[in-house]
């Protein structure tokens, strides 16, 4: 009998703790599938952030290291430099990467560190309970912007993919979403391309994945997907922003 569907080897049997409708589970699985398909599970090391995915080491079936808040790119870069034949990735939310860790992510990209960054953008600080993030959209209500983010007080949402695509050290920068099956498949493709970019030693790569937070947005999972399509994609356009083909 032919197996048509199974849990990736790169995921453990642990049940995800994520809220119903959260897309971390989808993205974890996509990364695990890519690692399996590239046959690099035994040489992959992941770096956990601080945020909802702080427990990601329970779910990925390879070695992982917990970084201080925002410092995952520095940690990944150090391991990659010491063990250049391993595959290194960070898994970071927008609080971790675009807020407290803005310095680390920019400099990892500037230095062209040969690591992959999977950046999950859901426009809020999820774990601490839905406060405004640098990626929060204008007018979006959060617990620290109760009447909506205002450009006069809080400025504009940070476009991390565009910011990082400017750096020479960035080899592959792409923004995707996991709101529907075609976009989920495109996200998987982008994750694989980022991992291949690292394998070829081309430089820094990041896939920004637009994601949902039904709990903190106060929407059900389906409406959250719709909100992502109607609000996030227009401001955060999808597609490849930087593709370096060779060294």
């Amino acid at each position: 009998m032919k197996t048509v569907f199974k849990k990736p080897e790169s995921l453990t049997d642990a049940q995800f703790h994520y809220c119903p409708g959260c897309t971390h589970g989808i993205i974890h699985r996509l990364i695990a599938e890519c690692v399996d398909e590239m046959n690099i599970r035994e040489s992959t090391i992941g770096i956990c952030p601080v945020g909802c995915s702080v427990l990601a080491y329970d779910y990925f079936n390879f070695d992982m290291l917990e970084a201080a808040h925002g410092r995952a790119p520095a940690i990944a870069a150090a391991i990659k430099r010491l063990l250049p034949d391993r595959t290194l990735f960070t898994y970071q939310g927008d609080g971790d990467l675009a807020s407290i860790g803005m310095g680390e992510i920019l400099h990892a990209s500037v230095r062209g560190e040969k690591i992959c960054v999977f950046f999950i953008n859901n426009t809020v600080y999820g774990m601490t309970g839905g406060q405004m993030a640098p990626t929060t959209l204008l007018g979006q209500v959060t617990t620290t912007s109760p009447y909506g983010r205002s450009k006069d007080n809080e400025g504009y949402p940070a476009k991390m993919a565009e910011i990082l695509a400017q750096n020479e050290g960035s080899a592959y920068i792409c923004r995707t979403a996991v709101n529907d099956p075609p976009n989920v498949m495109k996200t998987k493709k982008a994750i694989k391309k980022a991992l291949q970019t690292q394998a070829k030693g081309l430089g820094f790569s990041m896939v920004e994945i637009l994601s949902t937070c039904p709990t903190n947005w106060g929407l059900n999972p389906l409406d959250s997907m719709k909100w992502l399509e109607d609000n996030m994609i227009p401001y955060y356009p999808l597609g490849e922003l930087k593709v370096k083909e060779d060294r």
Partner: peptide, 9 residues
């Protein structure tokens, strides 16, 4: 966290 949250209100 709740302190800055309540205060934001």
């Amino acid at each position: 966290t709740e302190i800055p949250e309540y205060f934001a209100d």
